[in-house]
Structures are given as C-alpha cells and as structure tokens.
C-alpha cells in the first residue's frame, strides 16, 4: 500500500503540493485527475523518490522512502514500473533493447529467456514484429505501448502512468486505456494513473481522486465522482468554464 502523508512541496516559493494526503490501495487502479500544471506529476515523482518533499512522508508498504539511502531506495524502486508521458524511451537503442533493458539490469536470465519475455510482452501490447525499430521510427501511440511493455516486463507490484493518453487521438487513447485494463487484469499491479482525460478515468479507475490547489479534495469510485456535489469536482468533470476554478489561475 502507498500512503502520502501531509506532503508539501514548493518550487521557487510557489506551493505545488499543500498538505496532501492520499492512500493508494493494493491491486487497484487509482486515477488522479486535476488541472494541467496542478502538481499531479510532482506527486507521482514523490512516490518514486525522484523528488523529495519539503515536509510530509511517502510510505511504500510502511517504509518511509524519504529517509532511505540511494541503494535502499533502488531496492524499493524495483517494485515499480513507470510509463512516462512521452515514453522516455532510450533513443539510441531499438524497441527490443528498450524493453529488455530492465531485465538485463536486474536479472541474470539467459539471452533466450530474455527474448521469450520481450516477445511475449510485445505480443501483449500489440507490437509483435516491431522490435527492431528505433523509437524515432514509431508513432506516439506505439511509443506509449512500448513504455507500458518496458514498465511491465519485470512484473512490478506498482505501476505509475504519467498521462498515458495525452497527445493521442481518441481511438488510440481508448486503445491505451483498454491495454491498461487488460494488463491490470493479467498482472494485478497497483496502478496510479495521472490524467485529465475524464472518460479514460471513468473507464480505467477503480478509484478516482481529484487534486486541486495542492491537495486531494475528493476521492471515490467513478460513480461517486460523477455525481459529486463538490462544485470544483463538478466543474472539472463536466469540463465547464463556469465555476469556482479560475481558468487563468495557472
């Protein structure tokens, strides 16, 4: 289980996270929604230890990762997979090597076993036969799918998705959402998705949380969020310009 307790973080005097509290339950997918630039990715980077909070704690299975040394933190990170917004694929190596990278780094599998694993996950994400292409030679949607494959290749306990559908057309977005659901059903990971795609959140999330003004202002099932009485949540999920959210504020 992942718990964020009283998390506060400022950049250049601007408070991005303000006393944020949230719990992510095991084997469920939680979608964190909120405005662009509202601190969702910053929160995600706290969970994986890429950013340290000004105050507060990040607990992964009860361990406060902010007090860990580099090597101990790396042991915790082995439980994670992460899908980056733009894929963050290594552009100097091909798709096969990108997906095989974590396996080569953290296991002593034979080359034949690595091949089997990579081909199996490539088939899961619908990219069979694309393994020799370079990241620059594939589309945005394919890059996201390679990112998903790389994140899942070591069968991690927790998978973080940073805006997995941003920049994709609606059909490709739906395909990525379906891929996340099918991969979750297969691997049973704890998923945290950062998104502002409301339809995608309803579809993929067991739980939806709304981040606003640096804090979680509402959390619940998709049905609960849909029927929320909170005017901020309501305005955001309906995508209305009129309401308490000032669209010039960020």
């Amino acid at each position: 289980m992942i718990v964020l307790e009283r998390l506060t973080k400022s950049f250049n005097g601007i408070k991005v996270l303000n006393n944020l509290n949230i719990r992510f339950d095991d084997q469920k997918i939680t979608v964190v929604i909120g405005r662009s630039g509202g601190g969702k990715s910053v929160m995600l980077k706290h969970i994986i230890g890429l950013i340290r909070p000004d105050s507060g704690r990040v607990l992964i299975n009860g361990i406060n990762i902010n007090t860990l040394k580099k090597k101990e933190l790396n042991e915790i990170r082995k439980k994670f997979g992460m899908v980056f917004q733009d894929g963050a694929l290594f552009d100097s190596i091909n798709i096969f090597e990108n997906i095989a990278f974590p396996v080569r780094q953290h296991t002593k599998l034979k080359e034949s076993e690595i091949k089997d694993r990579v081909y199996s996950i490539l088939s899961d994400v619908g990219l069979s036969g694309q393994e020799l292409k370079m990241p620059a030679e594939i589309s945005g949607g394919m890059r996201k799918r390679v990112g998903v494959a790389r994140a899942l290749i070591l069968n991690p306990e927790i998978v973080l998705f940073d805006e997995p559908t941003t920049g994709l057309d609606p059909i490709m977005s739906d395909a990525i959402n379906n891929l996340i659901i099918s991969m979750h059903n297969k691997f049973k990971f704890t998923g945290i998705i950062i998104s502002h795609n409301i339809e995608g959140a309803y579809k993929t999330g067991d739980v939806i949380a709304m981040l606003y003004d640096g804090s979680i202002i509402e959390i619940g099932s998709p049905a609960e969020i849909k029927s929320s009485k909170n005017p901020v949540v309501n305005q955001f999920v309906t995508g209305s310009m009129n309401g308490p959210i000032n669209f010039n504020m960020i």
């Binding site: 980077k45 994986i48 230890g49 890429l50 580099k70 790396n74 042991e75 990170r77 082995k78 994670f80 997979g81 992460m82 980056f84 917004q85 733009d86 963050a88 694929l89 290594f90 552009d91 100097s92 990278f101 974590p102 780094q105 953290h106």
Partner: peptide, 21 residues
C-alpha cells in the same frame, strides 16, 4: 549533448525509476 538530451527527455528519470544509478 547525449546526456543532456537524455535529461530533458526524461530518459535519466527513466533510468532512476528502473533502479539504475
């Protein structure tokens, strides 16, 4: 330039997330 490009395209973050120093 190679490491700089990796930095601005989050490839360094990706290494860290994969527990690679």
């Amino acid at each position: 330039s190679e490491i700089g490009t990796m930095k601005v395209t989050e490839q360094i973050d990706a290494l860290e997330v994969m527990a690679v120093d």
